[in-house]
Amino acid sequence: MPLAGHAPAAGRKPRVHLVNPMLNPSGGSEWRTISLYRQLEPAADVRIWHFREAPSDAFSNVRLSRIDTRKLSFPRGGTLVFVGVYFNISHWIRLARPRRVILTYNTPDAERLAAKVDLIRKTCGLEPEIVFCSRELAEQVPYKGVVELSLVDLDAFTPSDRSGRTGFRLGRLSRDAPEKHHPEDMTLYAELAQQGCEVDILGATVEMQTAPLATSSANVHMRPLGSVKAPEFLHGLDCFFYRTSPLWAEPWGRVIIEAMASGLPVVTDRTSGASSVIEHGRNGLLFDTTQEAFDLVMRLKTDSALRESLGKAARETAENLLSAGVRAQVQAFYLHPRAPS
């Protein structure tokens, strides 16, 4: 068996196992897994592993393998990548015998990260490498690692021609978990609708879908998760709005980068990790309060030139963040590990 850290035999593609439950059709970890798979697949023998639960139908176009210890079906050897630390790792890890183990830390839970690091040390005899989804998250824990943005497909998320549009549509996309929505947002949406804005929320909770605002206002659309594909949804917007509940610290916010890649002006609060790539007034707009958010959206509604300039700069930012050079660095990290010092 090749020693830890050594490259595979000449002519053989490196083996990479990506592990994630793959349950949520708009989950950031799930789409990080898919994006990483697509980046590595041309140069590696890469496979995505999920657990007992059936994966979301949104990932039916990607071949997934199910971890089933009864059938001795689980990752073996190669590089083992856990995309997230929020799910449990069962006893199969003791038999996996990987060369490398990489933990993607993209949800703020220092206790779970520490537990996973300890588990890998005890079961695999390896020091796991840590990938952080943002610099802010990396600074919160006592581990060293690399910061790696979630790769967004710039060919799927593209600007659309909005020059001939009438009206103004603000939209938001996220998981439908309550903590992903700010408690003041429904009031904000109501005020925007009264001012002639169309509000379109993809990933609304059941409570939001059945709220009086959703059932009584023709300008407000509360859509269930997965009812439309993200690129198509973003193409129909004039502005992207995003913030989460104060109870959820958004470590990055992949959807913000998807919106920027789609050439949309983004209005977001300063708490998400992805807000760090927005320069207020150049490639997006930042706010601290609900009133500031309302004022910024209304400014965009009446200023098409501002929408266009922000959207153009947003696309350029996304292209720089996800350039060919950045993608090559990501691929090199997973496929060509540095020799131990």
Rank of each mutant, 00 (worst) to 15 (best):
L237Y: 05
W248T: 07
F241C: 05
D200G: 00
D238H: 09
M222G: 05
A218P: 10
W248P: 07
T244D: 13
A218N: 12
I201L: 07
P224W: 00
S227W: 04
T244S: 15
I201N: 03
V228N: 09
V220T: 10
W248M: 11
L234K: 11
L237W: 05
F233C: 04
A218G: 10
T244C: 15
T210P: 00
R223Q: 14
D238Q: 09
V206M: 06
D238W: 04
L237G: 08
S227Q: 08
R223L: 15
P251Y: 06
R243C: 11
L237Q: 10
L202Y: 05
L234R: 09
W248R: 11
N219K: 11
R223Y: 08
M208D: 04
A249M: 13
S217K: 03
L202E: 00
L237V: 13
I201S: 03
N219A: 15
P246G: 11
P251S: 13
R223I: 02
M208F: 04
H221E: 05
A230Y: 09
A211F: 01
L234N: 12
H235P: 04
I201C: 03
K229L: 13
V206T: 12
F240H: 06
A218D: 14
D200Y: 01
P246R: 08
Q209T: 06
G236V: 08
S216T: 15
T215M: 07
D200C: 11
A249D: 14
A230H: 10
A230E: 14
K229T: 15
S245H: 11
F240V: 06
P224R: 09
V206G: 02
H235I: 03
K229P: 04
D200S: 12
L202P: 08
E207W: 00
P246S: 11
L237F: 06
V228W: 07
K229H: 14
L202H: 01
A204T: 01
F240E: 05
T215P: 03
T244F: 03
R243E: 14
S216E: 15
L225Y: 08
P231Q: 11
C239D: 10
V199G: 00
F240G: 05
M222W: 03
S227E: 14
D200H: 08
L234T: 12
S227R: 08
A204R: 02
K229I: 11
H221F: 13
A211L: 00
P246V: 10
P212I: 05
M208I: 00
P212D: 08
D238N: 14
I201F: 03
G226I: 10
L247V: 14
R243P: 12
L225A: 13
P251R: 01
T244P: 07
F241T: 05
G226W: 07
A204W: 02
A214C: 09
R223A: 03
R223K: 12
H221I: 00
P231H: 09
V199I: 11
M222H: 06
T205R: 02
D238L: 02
V206R: 13
F240A: 05
P212Q: 04
F240R: 02
P224M: 02
M222A: 14
G203T: 06
L202K: 02
A218S: 14
H235R: 15
P224A: 03
V206L: 11
V228F: 07
L202R: 02
L247Y: 11
G236D: 14
A249T: 14
